[in-house]
Amino acid sequence: MSETATSASPWRPWRFLSRRLNAIGLTGKGLVILAPTLWLVVFFLVPLVIVGQISLSLMAYGQPPYEPLLTFGADGTVQLTLHLSNFLFLLSDSLYINAYLSSLRVAFVSTVIALLIGYPMAYYIARAPEKYRHLLLMLVILPFWTSFLLRVYAWIGFLRGNGVINNFLMWTGLIDAPITMLQTDFAVYVGIVYTYLPFMILPLYTSLVKLDGTLLEASADLGAKPLRTFLSVTLPLSMPGIIAGSMLVFIPAIGEYVIPALLGGPDTLMIGRVLWDEFFSNRDWPVASAVAVAMLIVVVVPIMLMQRAQDAVVERR
């Protein structure tokens, strides 16, 4: 990391720089806004427009492997050809609709499981003595900094036929033959919950640690049983954490490619995997683009609208 400028240094290159830039009509404010905006227009907005455009094209043999939308005739006419056939194809082949539905299901179930495991963990950490809290939180965050791919890989060694779990169960005599766990939907759930559990715990912890202990005592003094106190005090007050944590698990889970590819079986349909195969195996760029556009409309846009609504609620408070 570079050292930040200290006031002791007499060399101030920015004075020269700012004078130069002002001379060509660019103020500091303009530059600060312009640089990230331009970058995002070129590397975020334009690519999405191109995806939309190619989704309306047809596959062709050549480089690039799709037909141009605009064709220029010899007499100077310009012809625009748009094909909706890719989208009709997505609707007619049940593979794609099933993949969408099954992605939603996998993401939803994984989120619920992560919440069920993450909530008691976050609660325990939030109520632990203060000197242990940092250590416990660090233990939750630590796996996140190690490679995601290698952590998913670790589960292959755990779940496969002669893997750690099967060997252990057979050693204890609980089972006689290995259970098939790898290449099933079960393995995909395990992988997603495992990967995104820290994202669930952190926001839950943040909202639970702010919880005022006197509220719980008041509730108990008024005769409420622990379960009642939990349902009518703790749970509603930790709602922001539940929502934030669930979004952080649900959103990446929907488009997941690596986990179903490594842990799932051939029949584990997920939309991220379908897009990948459409592009890398079938080399059909237009259909892959159409899958991406459909994914944007069905998945990403609703999530963004939801987040915006949530931000508005937070700001109003």
Binding site: V51, I251, G255, L275, M295
Partner: peptide, 18 residues
């Protein structure tokens, strides 16, 4: 903020096409 919720496969595909 959109890249935070964008599935990697879409980001990758769109940038490749760009």
């Amino acid at each position: 903020s959109a890249p935070l919720v964008m599935p990697d496969v879409i980001t990758g595909l769109s940038l490749l096409l760009l």
